[in-house]
């Protein structure tokens, strides 16, 4: 029972099978059926993953392209369900998988803050209370009432990141997003993440950049060919990762 209270994410024997549906229209489907082509192709994106992530841990996930890193993150975020196995989450989750997923270009910055905040699980009142904090952090007071289609990509990301980090999550899932934005803002993002870390937020960071993970995480998981290769202290895992010669 004590175990349950300290575990933030538990992944038990989880596997994910993707059905690649090759034909999306009847035009493609009909000849395929008559020609005896398979309509669906299967492949395992993840096989038998077992993980227990404790509350307050900062875990980096590394591995080559196609190893299943993003799939693992999406499973944790609940956007896709495991084909086998079980995933249990303990706490409020903020997926920074792709920033600004709910943004609409025709709406103003202000409207998008409310829209995205509520999509990420805040109530309207909570967004109102945090509104100025969010805009302060994004440094976008000047443009807040303009449609975000006029924003530069940097401004767009700043706003999206700012909304996401103001949702007071217990678990933060981050997918490669910190490779974007200007230097200044990136520093600010990392500072904010350090604060989260100190506050005991569980952070899962997927990245290609090993230095980022070495700098920030205490534990690392090396994923390759849909399986966990090594899982342990960040120093050990990064050593094995470098020795494996990928990257």
């Amino acid at each position: 029972m004590k175990d349950n209270q300290t575990i933030a994410i538990s992944v038990a024997e989880a596997s994910k099978l993707f059905r690649l549906q090759k034909q999306r229209t009847f035009k493609e489907l009909l000849p395929a059926l008559f020609g005896g082509q398979k309509a669906v192709e299967h492949f395992w994106a993840l096989e038998n993953i077992n993980l227990k992530i404790k509350k307050g841990e900062t875990v980096g996930i590394i591995g080559p392209n196609g190893a299943g890193k993003s799939t693992l993150l999406k499973l944790m975020a609940g956007v896709t369900k495991p084909t086998k196995g079980k995933i249990t989450l303990n706490g409020k989750i903020a997926p920074l998988i792709e920033l600004g997923a709910g943004f609409h270009p025709e709406l103003t910055g202000r409207e998008n803050i409310f829209l995205n905040g509520i999509i990420l699980g805040l109530s309207k009142k909570e967004v109102t209370d945090r509104f100025s904090e969010i805009v302060d952090f994004a440094e976008l007071w000047e443009f807040i009432d303009q449609p975000i289609k006029h924003y530069s990509s940097g401004m767009y990301l700043r706003l999206a990141f700012s909304v996401a980090v103001h949702t007071n999550p217990d678990i933060l899932l981050i997918d490669e997003i910190l490779a974007v934005g200007d230097d200044n803002f990136r520093k600010k993002c990392f500072k904010r993440m350090e604060e989260f870390k100190k506050a005991g937020v569980t952070i899962i960071l997927v990245s290609h950049a090993l230095e980022q993970i070495q700098k920030f995480c205490t534990r690392a998981i090396y994923l390759n060919e849909h399986r966990v290769i090594v899982d342990g202290k960040v120093e050990e895992v990064s050593e094995k990762y470098v020795n494996a010669g990928v990257n």
Partner: peptide, 9 residues
């Protein structure tokens, strides 16, 4: 599609 593949509700 964007929302569907990023956030669950």
């Amino acid at each position: 599609a964007g929302l569907l593949s990023k956030i669950y509700f």
